[in-house]
């Protein structure tokens, strides 16, 4: 019994210790991002791997999510004779929730895992130690550019996801099923608010971008420097950042979308 409590205590202390280390690491990355922003070529290179390489999966999934929303939304709305509201349904659900959340999840599994594996492998093959030996700060040279590339890419990817999704909803709703095109767009424009909906969605995606890349670079930097350790860290990145996205999304939605509409 005492041993059980002892193990529980060790586990809790280790988690708290790791959280503190991750927070300190985050502050350190922010303080040493000078190089990443001054030598912007480094960040652009990482944006290619994090952002451009994720484009295909983001665009294709956005299109299909929007098409499914169009089909399902029409099925439900036409029962109440208000299939013209399809534009509102597709646009609001994409811009507010699905755009940032689903593209965040895809980004975590496509780019986050790659970042963790890369940094973890650099650590395992002692490249990071070699850099330190040459008086090159690996956080400034390796971690910070990847962090900023992720943070900058995420809102753009989420916007593209939402735009593609709305296009997919338009394809299915207007072109395939035959909802009136004018009603589709004008009802959408009348009820989607630029600040309340679009801007809040962008803020969400920025928050998710920070969370995912922070977790990804930290797990890579903290990985046990073995093949096993790197694979474990990659798995942890995907699991932790997916959970973080969903939890943060609940908190952000509660903050953003209940205050104004409750009264």
């Amino acid at each position: 019994m005492a041993e059980l409590f002892g193990r529980l205590g060790t586990m809790v202390t280790r988690r708290v210790w790791q959280l503190g280390y991750a927070a300190r690491f985050f502050a350190y990355v922010l303080m040493h991002s000078g190089t990443a922003l001054r030598r912007f070529g480094l960040t652009i290179r990482e944006m290619y791997f994090a952002g451009v390489m994720s484009l295909v999966i983001i665009l294709v999934s956005g299109l299909f999510v929007g098409m499914v929303l169009g089909l399902q939304g029409y099925e439900t709305l036409q029962r109440y004779g208000s299939s013209e509201a399809l534009g509102i349904l597709v646009a609001l659900s994409l811009v507010r929730e699905l755009g940032p959340v689903v593209s965040g999840l895809l980004f975590a599994s496509r780019a986050g895992s790659a970042i963790t594996a890369e940094i973890g492998l650099m650590k395992a093959t002692e490249q990071l130690a070699a850099m330190e030996m040459m008086a090159v700060d690996p956080i400034a040279r390796v971690v910070a550019p990847r962090f900023w590339a992720g943070v900058l890419s995420m809102p753009l990817l989420a916007a593209l996801f939402s735009a593609m999704g709305i296009f997919g909803g338009y394809l299915v709703g207007v072109q395939l099923i035959g909802v009136d095109e004018g009603a589709f767009w004008s009802q959408m424009q009348a009820s989607v608010d630029w600040r309340q909906d679009v801007l809040n969605g962008v803020i969400k995606s920025i928050v998710f971008g920070i969370a995912v890349t922070w977790i990804a670079v930290f797990e890579g930097y903290d990985a046990t420097p073995t093949a096993e350790g790197v694979s474990g860290a990659t798995t942890r990145t995907v699991v932790t950042s997916s959970l973080a996205i969903l939890a943060l999304d609940f908190v952000l939605t509660a903050l953003m979308f209940t205050g104004g509409n409750a009264r």
Partner: peptide
């Protein structure tokens, strides 16, 4: 390097076009 720059440029431009589409066409800003 230059190829990477072009692709990242295309990506950023496309992202801003997406944002603009959401703001103007969807959000009716």
């Amino acid at each position: 390097r230059s190829t990477i720059d072009i692709w990242v440029g295309v990506f950023v431009a496309a992202g801003f076009v997406g944002l603009l589409f959401l703001a103007l066409r969807v959000g009716n800003l």
